[in-house]
Design a protein around this nucleic acid. Structure first.
Length: 588
RNA sequence: GCCCCGAUAGCUCAGCUGGAUAGAGCGUCCCCCUCCUAAGGGGAAGGCCACAGGUUCGACUCCUGUUCGGGGCACCA
């Protein structure tokens, strides 16, 4: 509807320009918005105020000129000029009513649009290192990423969802070594666990599974494992935990041999990755693809990317390493691609990964990242430009951290230390609907406090139930209508929509009518929280209406008109909730 | 030191890409079930939109600076 009005105004402005009443060189962006106050109509436009100065005209007079040249439309009842020169549009009742009809006919598809023009977009999110189960810190990225994906799909993009699996590199070696040490303990060895190892209990479980699958195949005498190692970091800060864990990794590799080491490595990875997949599936996050970092090496993608950069002349050698000249593309400093020991860096993998995304035919690349990765964005953008791709086709959406509290106590969220609340623990306790809604209610760049106690204790006060309750109430009314032999007759209701004259009814109608614009805006800005807040407003209007008027009245014309209105409300609630992957129960 | 994000009611947060009188939930205080689910509704109180400048017909919104929080600045991943 906003677009319709914008078109009307645009036509009027053009007419005025052709008539020489307005300077022809003006090309104003027409901004139509929903009004806050009903006396201002349904939509308002500030175009006259915007144009007043460049056109050198009084804004009110200009508004009058524009209004006089607006084309006729059966969607608009009345146009007013108010205040300093706002043009207020009153929507025609017939138009509102036809919307209701459309909501029921199009059903689940109502509100979807073609803004994205079928453009292929890849949304990468979560992508947590597979060194431990997902914890509540990952929940926000998971909730936000999947909601954004759904939103983009709803406004017409061809969306693929992907998880980048960091299955190569040092962190995975640390995990493999941690598993192996726990495995040795399982077989009776006594040892002091490295300070920098993964200490979570899940590692012990993996080790036990490893022991039952391979029995004692990987047992080595503990003395040979622990002899001649550098000192681990102690309580008082002596020693070096990094050097120690690296030495242990090297020891594991040499004692086990490549084949056995890989078995242990893969065992830990598979176990954790499967857990992540299960948790996400249960949390209603469906990935289209799991992209392995390791595969970038085996497929030659890294070599390919390095070659592309090199051919473009954006690499150089210094101190035995190969560098990318990121500073030429706006980054703070140049970045190492290949270390002096010949190994490629994580950054090299990521350059290759992003090039690969483009080469797979995606026209828009979206990375949903934790805010701790922000410093990383400029260098990825730089690499994309350097490889001849357009940096405009890459968007990094940063999700700020959620700080976890239990009451007033701040909780640690470290995979390494093993002290964290898993995502599964969270949704098992507060419920998937509540958890998802809670995360997505806040806009992504807002820091959020997540108080576990509050979320658990007050799960009934969670706004998600308020919305779901509205949906369930409509379902219940419709069920009872049927039981009483007053089954909803849509056609009859349609013919009597003019009976919907109460203020609650017009408020609800107006709110329903806003859905498609709000969805479009939410999709355009990739801001799912706008949907969450819209649904809260809609539920509020509905509950208020519910308490003010009876639906199952004797007058069948009025009754069916009202049932039509609340059926449309139910549909919109269901559509909005589905975008957030929150269920819409028919009874509670 | 540099970079990113934030600061709005007692608390947690919205404010729709500069508009008309700044909103909601929780909490506090009143009131409403012989009636479609009270997981609901109606009302009250509660604000120097961190601070200071600037741009504008108009600023919570944009710009600059300051203060205070969160995060980041590797030949780690």
């Amino acid at each position: 509807m906003k677009n319709t009005i914008a078109d009307l105004i645009s036509t009027a402005v053009k007419t005025l320009q052709d008539a020489g009443e307005l300077p022809a060189e003006l090309s104003p962006t027409i901004h139509v918005e929903h009004t806050k106050d009903k006396s201002h109509g349904d939509f308002a436009c500030n175009i006259a105020l915007m144009l007043a100065k460049p056109a050198k005209q009084n804004p009110r007079k200009l508004a009058e000129l524009i209004v006089a040249h607006l084309p006729e439309s059966d969607k608009v009842e009345k146009v007013d000029i108010a205040g300093p020169g706002f043009i207020n549009f009153f929507q025609s009742a017939a138009n509102l009513w036809s919307m209701l009809d459309e909501m029921l006919t199009r059903g689940k598809d109502y509100g979807r649009c073609t803004l994205g023009q079928g453009k292929k977009v890849l949304v990468e999110f979560v992508s947590a290192n597979p060194t431990g189960p997902l914890h509540v810190g990952h929940g926000r990225g998971a909730s936000f990423g999947s909601a954004v994906s759904n939103l983009l799909a709803a406004v017409g993009y061809d969306v693929s969802r992907e998880y980048y699996v960091n299955d190569a590199g040092r962190q995975m070696d640390i995990l493999a070594t941690s598993v192996w040490l726990r495995y040795l303990e399982h077989h009776g060895a006594t040892l002091t666990f490295p300070r920098n190892g993964y200490k979570g209990d899940y590692v012990k479980i993996i080790a036990a599974n490893l022991a039952s699958a391979h029995e004692a195949a990987f047992v080595q005498p503990i003395d040979s494992v622990m002899s001649d190692l550098p000192q681990d970091e102690t309580e008082d800060g002596q020693g070096d935990k990094e050097a120690y864990i690296d030495a242990l990794i090297a020891r594991a590799k040499s004692l086990l041999g490549a084949e056995h080491y890989d078995t242990v490595h893969a065992f830990g990875l598979d176990d954790i990755l499967q857990g992540i997949k299960d948790d996400l599936a249960e949390y209603r996050v469906v990935m289209d693809n799991w992209f392995s970092e390791k595969s970038l090496v085996s497929s030659g993608a890294i070599a390919h990317a390095l070659e592309v950069l090199d051919k473009a002349g954006h690499t150089y050698e210094k101190e035995g390493a190969i560098w990318f000249r990121a500073t030429a593309f706006g980054d703070d400093k140049d970045r190492v691609l290949v270390r002096d020991n010949g190994q490629t860096t994580y950054f090299a993998s990521d350059v290759a990964y992003h090039l690969n995304k483009f080469e797979r035919g995606f026209e828009w690349i979206v990375d949903v990242l934790g805010s701790d990765h922000h410093g990383y964005v400029p260098r990825v953008k730089a690499a994309i430009s350097a490889m001849g791709k357009s940096p405009e086709q890459f968007t990094a959406m940063l999700v700020q951290f959620a700080t976890l509290y239990r009451g007033s106590e701040r909780l640690p969220m470290s995979t390494r230390s093993g002290e964290f609340v898993t995502l599964k623990d969270l949704y098992d306790e507060v419920g998937i609907d509540a958890a998802r809604f809670f995360y997505v209610m806040r806009k992504n760049e807002q820091h959020m406090d997540f108080d576990l106690e509050l979320a658990k204790k007050q799960s009934n006060d969670n706004p998600v139930y308020y919305i779901q309750y509205a949906h369930a109430r409509v379902c219940s009314v419709l069920r009872q209508a049927e039981d009483k032999g007053m089954a909803f007759d849509q056609a009859l209701g349609q013919r009597h929509l003019s009976l919907l004259t109460s203020s609650h009814e017009s408020t609800l109608l107006t709110k329903l009518n806003q859905y498609s614009d709000r969805l479009r805006a939410a999709g355009n800005n990739a801001e799912p929280h706008m949907i969450a807040h819209y649904l809260l407003e809609l539920a509020t209007d509905f509950h208020s209406y519910y308490n003010a008027e009876a639906f199952l009245v004797e007058d069948e014309a009025l009754r069916n008109a009202r049932l039509l209105l609340i059926s449309a409300t139910r549909q919109i609630l269901a559509n909005g909730l589905e975008l957030l992957a929150v269920s819409a129960p028919s009874e509670m």
